[in-house]
Write a protein that binds this DNA or RNA. Sequence first.
DNA 1: ATTTTGTCTTTGACGAGTCAAAGACGGTAT
DNA 2: ATACCGTCTTTGACTCGTCAAAGACAAAAT
Lengths: 219, 219
Amino acid sequence: MPTSTVENYLKAILVRSADAGAVVSTGSIAEALGVTPGTITTMVKSLAAQGLVEHQPREGVRLTPAGRAHALGVLRKHRLIETFLVQVLKMDWKEVHEEAEALEHAISDRVLLRIDAILGHPVSDPHGDPIPSPKRPLFDRGKGVTLATCEPQRPFRVQRILDQSGPFLEFIQRTGLKPGARVRVRERDRASGVVRCELGDAEAALGLPEAAKIEVGAA
Amino acid sequence: MPTSTVENYLKAILVRSADAGAVVSTGSIAEALGVTPGTITTMVKSLAAQGLVEHQPREGVRLTPAGRAHALGVLRKHRLIETFLVQVLKMDWKEVHEEAEALEHAISDRVLLRIDAILGHPVSDPHGDPIPSPKRPLFDRGKGVTLATCEPQRPFRVQRILDQSGPFLEFIQRTGLKPGARVRVRERDRASGVVRCELGDAEAALGLPEAAKIEVGAA
DNA sequence: ATTTTGTCTTTGACGAGTCAAAGACGGTAT
DNA sequence: ATACCGTCTTTGACTCGTCAAAGACAAAAT
Ligand SMILES: [Mn+2]
Ligand SMILES: [Mn+2]
Ligand SMILES: [Mn+2]
Ligand SMILES: [Mn+2]
């Protein structure tokens, strides 16, 4: 019966530990949760006492298997909820993260099962982030091909939006560069730093750093 | 930004004040929320300081207009959520109250609007309880006709289940005496205290006190 | 008029979660 | 070797929601 605060901490640690067993700095958790560093230290000690993390003072934090399992459960809820809000409730693409941030702590496993079934057991959320499950324990870490690095002229499919800030999602929505969209890089001009690409019959231009925020895969 | 605790208090006071402006004893709130009397007194003082209730010490508590408005909003959320869980997620009829108790504090007004629209703006929840709205401010207080008092032989429609305890809802589900069901009292034997009624082609028997827990209306 | 009883309030304490400010640490620069 | 700096930890304090236990009150019983 972890509190919702504890769940948020665990999830923050999980998504920040690239690989299972990686160590995360308390500072980065503080920044992610918008809380002072001292608060993290205190909380981390409490999490360690509950067996959810290991803490090497002045070194970092690592999820225990129990902590990781719980964090994965929360992340799964979060992403299934986002998918549900978009697919079933037809909510706006860029609003759902905030909603899911609260709902992930309020929805029971029973409700989650129903949602998962209604959605047909999806494997990724509206942003293209993978939905972990007991049988699919995360980390299909794509090879990291993005609009900044993929082969020009060849058709790809948008897979995942790496920058999920409001303005960037606005842009994605406006241009239609959402996960699932077919896209082709027309021209990548290293001098001007502009990537020009084609979506169906439309065109979109974006800077190189921005192009690197859009992961693509085989069409 | 009332906390979810405050919302639960306001809702408890609302559903316990038969008429708008009625006074509720702190003791009954304590019992409803499963909390000690001292806690209520403390909390009520805080609610009063926030202008949500008026408190006559040793007399009772009354919602202010602001408190009532907020309580109505929470009650609306609760009942719309219950309806959604049954109608859209096909959840079990007797599980939804508990789920809604948590979700009512986590769902935003945006999500609520979508749910309301998808359900077609329902006016009552699965238990037959009215769903308040800005234009429909509660209190369609039925005339209180129940299976214990309605005219025998004449067909009625189940309107509302007054006892929402687990076992009673089990019974309702088993017999099909849910809101919306057509029902007819065949025989009401005051000596044995048994009410025998007919639902479609099936029959159901129940005691008089139990019959009084099932409100009915014109078929 | 007392005493009893039931209900309400007060008081002191606690856990959870947080912050501000002060302190400890360790790596980098001088 | 020493000083400096950025990061992490400690400490003391605060809010919110809660309880247990003791106290106040008023209505009912004697
Ligand atoms: Mn959250
Ligand atoms: Mn997402
Ligand atoms: Mn609730
Ligand atoms: Mn209900």
